[in-house]
Design a protein around this nucleic acid. Structure first.
Length: 555
RNA sequence: GACCCUGUAGCUCAGCUGGAUAGAGCAACGGCCUCCUAAGCCGUAGGUCGGAGGUUCAAAUCCUCUCAGGGUCGCCA
């Protein structure tokens, strides 16, 4: 538990006692006391709406209740320096400031623990994201999914969940056959045979590249070889190369998965039929029109869904149900799927399947990643200038840079449509929020270097009580809010709260920097401010790391 | 037709498990470098929170209806 939480806990406890001793309400009638941090600091360090909540129970006006509470609360026990009753009945608390110094010191002595919590209680959660088909290149939308998914995992880990990152490889459907035929056609073209691309073949440059590789390494030996053998080889080769490329791109984007799960392994290990049998045994399937149907309407889906088509093959849903069953069998208590917006209609049937198999609906949740629109110089960009196709993740990384790309994707709530401003993301100026935050970090590093030259080092035991200016206190408070920001972002599955927080922290630092001098002739204060500034640096770095952004030491 | 997302300052967005005069960035305007990075700071201006009802002591936030934009509705994946 962070110092901030402890402090709030103590305050709640004292307020609770005050309500009882003032005879306003019985202990059982008191609602959960909410302590908030007011937006306006004129409203104190903390505030509560308790008096308003008690109006009904106590049958008194909120302000009168607030007066009663105020006169009964043990101020020194709760760490209250001063308190105000304001507005319709808010109680504003101005706290004794010594707790702020304690927070800074604990950041310096236990930096690794700062910002972590145990609200997850070690719960095993699996997050499946990106999962793009291994038939081409990662695009804009995948990049957003990767950034959001990875940041969410970081947050859940910080909040004490046991997290696994998984990528589901769709390597069994006919899109893979298509990959094989496309690669085959490209290969034959390379060795001078007349061959046409399949009608809906993959036109990407990557496939041509793979065909060239095969010619380099194996010559034209597949030209006249047995078609089945050739295709088996191309399947393996094409898939491997596509996966290598996906992994490499994602690694570069600072996203790595714990587990790459192959759809075809569900077939190889006979994991699909047993699930069909299980559903049938539970009476959740029926035959009609030559197909086998799943009664998803029993769980609120719009209509029932086909599992086995009348040609005897499975729909996409069928192995996917088996896949989810497999995930739950692996011991995950909760599954989080991060899907593109085009899959939102798919949620009810998957949730139906989970329930039909006897699991709780809540064991699977879906985070939808909404569309991304690219803008450059105020104009909508649809296609890559280079290739004429959709803009790829790699192009983004190269043109915009990884830090800015990850920051921009983390910056907005995942389920909202995103306008990605290329011009802004690329600009190395004050308009760009990424640089603003990174600059704060670099600025501190610069101060620390200069302090070092003058013989000052950061001392966690520095006496922080000498820091009394408004800017000092603002900055300490902002650092203290970090653990709460992380816990909040994790609970709400909202990485964008971290970028909001870190921007705020950077702003507070810059403001402090312009108002107060860190390195001065006053040794005591210099030590105290160095400690403060180092704590800010650690916090900036940790917050940026949560969204996959580097914290440079120089800019 | 059904469902999902969105509608808050000129632009991009926070806030949405109800609370104090609705916040931030950019853009606009005015200031600040003999001083630890001006990629910075300080200030000014700018809003019928799409609209209409309702619930509440209190609504941007909850409910109903409605308008606008985007998306999805396959025995594709």
């Amino acid at each position: 538990m962070s110092q901030m939480e402890e402090l709030k806990g103590k305050l709640k406890e004292q307020l609770h006692q005050a309500v009882v001793s003032a005879g306003l309400a019985d202990a059982s009638e008191i609602p959960e006391i909410v302590i908030e941090t007011p937006k306006d600091k004129a409203h104190g360090d903390f505030a509560t709406n308790l008096a308003m909540q008690l109006a009904r129970v106590a049958k008194k006006a909120p302000r009168a209740i607030a007066e009663d509470i105020a006169s009964h609360v043990d101020r020194s026990e709760a760490g209250i320096r001063e308190l105000d009753i304001a507005g319709p009945g808010f109680i504003n608390f101005f706290m004794q400031t010594d707790y702020l110094g304690d927070i800074i010191q604990s950041v310096l002595t236990h930096p690794e623990a700062f910002g972590t919590s145990d609200i997850g209680g070690g719960k095993k959660v699996q997050v499946e994201f990106v999962s793009a088909n291994p038939t081409g290149t990662l695009h804009l939308g995948h990049a957003r999914g990767a950034a959001v998914g990875d940041s969410l995992c970081n947050l859940l880990e910080a909040a004490g969940y046991d997290v696994e990152r998984e990528y589901y490889i769709n390597d069994a459907g006919n899109q893979i056959d298509n990959l094989v035929y496309s690669l085959e056609a490209r290969y034959l073209q390379e060795v001078g045979e007349p061959a046409e691309m399949p009608e809906d073949g993959y036109q990407g440059e990557d496939i041509i590249g793979f065909a060239k590789e095969i010619v380099e390494n194996y010559g034209d030996r597949f030209k006249d070889s047995d078609v089945e053998k050739r295709r088996a080889f191309f399947r393996e080769y094409g898939l491997k190369r596509e996966l290598d490329k996906l992994k490499a791109d994602l690694e570069e984007f600072r996203v790595s998965f714990d587990h790459w799960f192959s759809e075809s392994s569900l077939y190889d290990e006979n994991k699909i039929q047993p699930v069909l049998d299980d559903l049938a045994a539970r009476g959740k399937t029926y035959e009609a029109d030559g197909a086998t149907w799943f009664r998803s309407t029993e769980y609120g889906d719009d209509k029932d869904r086909v599992l086995i088509k009348n040609d005897g093959t499975f729909t996409y849903l069928t192995p996917d149900i088996a896949y989810h069953k497999d995930k739950l069998n692996r011991g995950f208590e909760e599954l989080v799927n991060i899907w593109g917006a085009d899959h939102h209609g798919y949620i009810p049937r998957m949730q139906a399947a989970i329930q039909a198999l006897g699991y709780e609906k809540e064991q699977m949740s879906v985070q939808i990643i909404q569309m991304v629109n690219l803008f450059e110089n105020g104009e909508k960009v649809k296609m890559s200038k280079r290739t004429g196709n959709a803009v790829t993740m790699r192009e983004l990384m190269e043109e915009v840079g990884i830090d800015a790309t990850r920051y921009f994707f983390a910056m907005r709530a995942a389920e909202t449509h995103l306008d990605f401003d290329l011009t802004l993301a690329k600009s190395e100026s004050n308009e760009n929020p990424v640089y603003y935050v990174q600059y704060a970090h670099a600025r501190i590093c610069s101060m620390l270097r200069q302090a070092d030259e003058k013989g000052f080092t950061v001392n966690p035991d520095a006496d922080l009580s000498v820091l009394e200016s408004e800017k000092d206190l603002d900055l300490m408070k902002k650092v203290g809010e970090f653990p709460e920001a992380v816990a909040d972002a994790a609970t709400r599955r909202a990485p964008h709260r971290i970028t909001n927080y870190v921007y705020d922290l950077a702003q507070t630092l810059h403001s402090f920097y312009n108002a107060e001098k860190v390195i001065t002739d006053n040794e005591e204060r210099t030590h105290a401010r160095l400690a403060l500034v180092e704590a800010v640096r650690i916090t900036l770095k940790k917050a940026l790391a949560l969204v996959g952004v580097n914290a440079p030491e120089k800019m």
